[in-house]
Design a protein around this nucleic acid. Structure first.
Lengths: 147, 147
DNA sequence: CTGCTAGCTTACGTTTACGTAAGAAACCGC
DNA sequence: GCGGTTTCTTACGTAAACGTAAGCTAGCAG
């Protein structure tokens, strides 16, 4: 469905480059279940990725770095998303609008939870920033009073 | 000079409580030179702290958590501040306004560097936040179109 | 003085998140 | 087909940031 899936598959080194990480990290994330393993890859053969996979990994790294989440935290998020994805498949097939609504509402809950985290962080950062600005002002005024 | 220094000294457990960390962490920070060690404490006797020390530790923990700085990064910051403090003492005694100005300007450089870090973080956080909001909107509109 | 709790020192242990090395196999260009 | 690069698997190594345990002491409460 995604246009991205049509293009030449990316190799692990390219993905690492694009996301600013290393092949080892990518394999490790797969190993702990943070990234999915292609079930049809034969032993010893190369992994390949789509641009969507790159975006996915970028997002995980962002959550990790910006929110300070551990890989375990991320895994929980990923698993929750996966669970919702399963339900989505089941329920979209039945085309029952009541169930579909429930799925979307769960997605909203999920997003609200993440937003809460992000906004809390932003608030803390802003407080830190304004304290630094205040100090800056004090130093500047002392500089002025020195002539 | 600080009013805080007049009050009953705090023990390590209280400081840990107040900063949301543990005594072990505080001792560790002292061990690696992140927190100063009172030079007059006899071997085996208790550490004690002022409310200013608590604030100091809070700030370090904030920089660590919000900016994702390592203890090594923090140590560099602390050392830079200490170096500036030494110069301040020396030069304030001489009461040479030219030197005093230089100290203040160095402080500004220091603050500007930290502010740059903090603002970069805030920008990233804000981008993440707006992406989440966008997703939220999409889900909400799909909900509405479901009736 | 006597308990009791919290703190001290020393030292080894642990978790997280990968790094690194070795040997083999997969592609890719020629 | 072949050399060169990249990847694969397996497994051991490691740095950072503390945790934990043991034996001992400070210092206060009664």
């Amino acid at each position: 469905m995604s246009a991205a899936a049509q293009e030449r598959p990316l190799r692990i080194g390219e993905v690492a480059e694009l996301t600013g990480t290393t092949p080892r990290t990518i394999r490790y994330y797969e190993e702990i279940g943070l990234l999915p393993e292609a079930e049809d890859r034969e032993h010893g053969k190369r992994r390949h990725y789509t641009p969507d996979d790159v975006e996915r990994l970028r997002e995980l790294l962002r959550l990790k770095d910006l929110l300070g989440l551990s890989l375990d935290d991320l895994k929980r998020i990923v698993e929750a998303e996966a669970a919702r994805a399963v339900l989505r498949e089941q329920w979209q097939q039945t085309e029952d609008p009541t169930e579909q609504r429930q799925i979307l509402e769960e997605a909203l809950v999920h997003l609200a939870a993440q937003l809460k985290l992000v906004r809390a962080r932003r608030t803390e950062i802003e407080r830190l920033e304004s304290e630094l600005v205040a100090r800056q002002r004090r130093v500047k005024s002392r500089l002025k009073s020195l002539g």
